[in-house]
């Protein structure tokens, strides 16, 4: 029977799932993802995680527990220290495997390999080799699995660049037809936020679908090429060493300049340190650069849907109002 490897549908799942899945599949494992976030998973996470952690980490606890209940043989929660040279991932990610191991009991074996590419990119393949050894002694096979994983990730990132959102991209990679974009939208709204906040429909109060149904097409930071993000983020007086924060700020700066973007919504998880700063940086640039309408939404486990809906409705009203005024102004001029 193949070994069952569980992957939590949380944290950087939305960045690396295609790689991880392909890697473990090639090694002959069965890949199991935790269920989509629901009230039970969130509550489980809240009651098992330390209070000081941020909402995404608490939620990730819930997903680990969900996998444990599925009786998987392993749970894959790599210790993500750094995924780019000279940069870091949030320290809460770094400590996540330890937090899990010390606060939860009766878990299957945890694969918590360290991924630290701060100094050398080569560290990445080393880390995967270490994981591969758990399942096979054949180094060629591990190498093949890693290469196939990388290829899958490349395809995934390409789909994002082509305008897919993660769920669509996952579906396309599973062989489903790419859905053509409906043209019934009159607005284009950029949604900026950590992938595990904005793409998780439960946590984000379904913001993407909600915006769609209110007539707005959504673009996100992850659909921008890496070069653009880095070029824009380089406008900061000092380099941001958070990889994720850099993507958000870089994307924010790029969206502010883009005349096709009608408004920017920044989604912040309550108790996220880096977010509190990146949000402000983007807000300032949107104010300075000539007023791309900007909305800041803070989410936590207590957030009522009503407050979010009211703000989104008011925001879209504001964007449309401004647009129609500009159109009228152009017409009369």
């Amino acid at each position: 029977m193949p070994a069952g490897v569980g992957i939590p549908r949380a944290l950087l799942y939305y960045y690396y799932y295609p790689l991880w899945k392909e890697f473990f599949k090639t090694l002959g494992c069965e890949v199991i993802i935790s269920d989509k976030t629901n009230k039970a998973i969130l509550n489980d996470g809240l009651s098992h995680c330390v209070d000081e952690a941020c909402l995404p980490v608490k939620l990730a606890f819930g997903h680990v527990l969900n996998l444990a209940a599925k009786k998987v043989d392993y749970i894959f929660i790599p210790r993500l220290v750094s995924v780019a040279k000279g940069e870091y991932i949030c320290p809460k990610f770094l400590g996540f495997p330890d937090m899990v191991k010390h606060s939860l009991t009766g878990l299957p074996e945890i694969i918590d390999v360290t991924i630290n590419m701060r100094l050398k990119h080569r560290e990445l393949s080393k880390a995967y080799t270490q994981v591969g050894k758990l399942f096979t002694g054949n180094r060629v096979k591990i190498w093949q699995a890693y290469r196939r994983g990388e290829k899958a990730l490349k395809r995934y990132n390409q789909l994002l660049l082509e305008g897919c959102l993660p769920e669509e991209a996952f579906a396309v990679m599973e062989g489903k037809q790419k859905q053509s974009k409906l043209n019934s939208h009159d607005l284009k709204i950029a949604v900026i936020g950590h992938p595990y906040n904005i793409y998780d429909p439960y946590i984000s109060m379904n913001i993407i679908k909600r915006l769609n149904s209110m007539g707005a097409r959504v673009v996100t930071a992850d659909q921008l090429p890496e070069e653009v993000v880095r070029r824009e983020a380089a406008n900061l007086p000092k380099k941001l060493f958070w990889t994720l924060g850099q993507r958000m700020v870089g994307a924010g700066y790029s969206f502010v300049k883009d005349n096709n973007i009608d408004g920017i919504i920044n989604i912040v998880a309550f108790a996220c340190g880096p977010d509190s700063m990146t949000g402000e940086l983007i807000a300032r640039s949107s104010r300075k650069a000539g007023q791309t309408p900007f909305l800041n939404l803070t989410l936590d486990e207590h957030t009522g849907e009503a407050g979010v809906v009211t703000r989104i409705e008011a925001f879209l009203d504001m964007v449309r109002w401004k647009k129609s005024q500009q159109a009228a102004g152009l017409g009369s001029a």
Partner: peptide, 13 residues
């Protein structure tokens, strides 16, 4: 500004 809403905020928590 100029007769349209340019920005708004509501109290949060």
């Amino acid at each position: 500004r100029k007769g349209v809403v340019a920005d708004f905020a509501m109290n949060t928590v």
